[in-house]
Each structure stands twice: as C-alpha cells, then as structure tokens.
Amino acid sequence: MRDMLHEGRKGSTAVRLIHMLVLSLSASGVVLGFAAGFALAIQMNPETADRYVLNLGSLGEWASAIASAAAVLTALWLAWKQRRDSEEKILLKQYSTRDGYWLSLVSSGGRTATVLEVFLTSKRGEQTIALSRPPLVQSGDLPRQMQYGDTYTITADASEYGRIATEWAQAHPGSSIPLLYVVVVTSLGSFEQEINPDFCQSLRTALEGRSG
C-alpha cells in the first residue's frame, strides 16, 4: 500500500463493466465459431462423425453453457468490485519545502474511515515518531472520522525538523536517519508510504546541525 498517490481507480464503473462484457462476448464468439465450424465439417463429412463426436450435444446447448459461464464470471467480478469499493481507503499526499512539510490524508473509499494515529517509522519498524500530536495537529483532532472526499492535513513547520530528528537520534545513538515511511493507522487497517525525499533530507540536515 505504499504507492497511494495513484488515483486511477476513479474510472467509471460502467466503462469497466462494458469492457468486461465485451471480453466475455468475444471469448464466447470464438468458442461458438469453433463449434459452428466443427458442426459444419461434420455435416459435410457425416462418415467421420463417429471418429470425432462422442456426445457434444447441440449447438444451442453449447451456446447456453457459454452464456451461463459468462454470467457467472460477470457476477463474481461485480461482487468483488462492490466489496473493494466498500472498503476504507486513505490516499497520502506529501509536500515539502524549506518552510515545512505537509501531509494530506484523503478519504477515497466507500466506507467511512476513522483515523487513529499517524507516525513515522523505518522499514524494519525500529522506532516510531508520532506526527499525530501537538503542535503538528490540534488537540482533539484525532481520532477523526473521514467520509468519502474528506481531507485532513498535518503540518510540520521547519522549526519542528530538529525535534523530530533528535527524537530519532535519541532512540538510535550514532546512526543516521534511514529511509522512513509515514504510516496512517485507522480502525480497520493501516496505510503507508515512503516519506517525501526532500523531507527526509531536511531531517538528516537538521540532525547533522544539532550534532555539529
């Protein structure tokens, strides 16, 4: 779930359904064409029928079976699509400049998302640095329920870089700041993404400045 900036899933459900039906009908057409050609060949050479036809049934039975299979596949796909769309989903958008760092949480799922906490961590989960606490967020902002389309932004002024870097250094004496991930924890799961590289570099610079 790291790459949550991709918003391509906003495509029309109707377009996807039509695409699925076209694929199903195309596959059905291929099979029906094969069956029709096979039946025609048998009619033209009835003496070979006992060699190739054991109990293939009529062309209508084949068409009915193919249509039933296509209907089942379409129903399964629609059920999977509906279940996926009913899940909570949080998109993470990050911006970093000399003046600060902004992390925007955007609710894009079909279910209301309840955001519990936000923190930074390394890939190995060695240490967490809370971002969901004052002064980065207002007291009482979290937990926070987010409907579809709601946006909530956490802001870290450049003056906070030193505190965040020092907090990491205290937990890992003598080590530099590795590649970090921002993690958003909700009531039903979590979403993570690599932190903005400029923000990561700013934390490293702040740590070097305090060490020097």
Results as ranks from 00 to 15, higher is better:
A14Y: 13
R16E: 14
R16W: 13
L17K: 10
I18L: 15
H19T: 14
H19C: 09
M20F: 14
M20C: 08
V22T: 13
L23Y: 10
L23V: 12
S26P: 00
S28Q: 14
V30T: 13
V31N: 09
L32N: 09
F34R: 12
A35N: 09
A36I: 15
A36G: 07
A36F: 13
G37M: 09
G37I: 06
L40G: 12
L40T: 13
L40D: 11
I42V: 15
M44K: 10
N45S: 11
N45H: 12
E47S: 11
E47W: 12
E47F: 10
T48R: 11
D50R: 12
L54N: 02
L54E: 06
S58A: 04
L59R: 03
L59Q: 00
L59F: 12
G60V: 06
E61W: 06
S64P: 06
A65T: 07
I66Y: 00
S68Y: 09
S68E: 08
S68W: 08
A70V: 09
L73Q: 05
T74V: 13
A75E: 01
L78I: 10
L78S: 00
L78W: 05
W80H: 02
K81V: 02
K81C: 03
E87N: 02
I90Y: 01
I90F: 04
L92G: 04
Q94P: 03
Q94N: 03
Y95D: 11
S96T: 00
T97N: 11
R98S: 07
G100E: 04
G100S: 08
Y101G: 01
W102G: 10
L103D: 03
L105C: 09
V106F: 06
S107Q: 03
S107M: 06
R111C: 11
T112L: 14
A113Y: 02
A113F: 03
A113P: 10
T114Y: 05
T114H: 01
T114N: 05
L116N: 15
E117T: 15
E117H: 09
V118E: 01
F119D: 05
F119I: 07
L120V: 12
L120W: 03
T121Q: 08
S122N: 13
S122K: 07
K123S: 14
K123M: 08
G125P: 09
G125C: 10
G125L: 06
E126G: 14
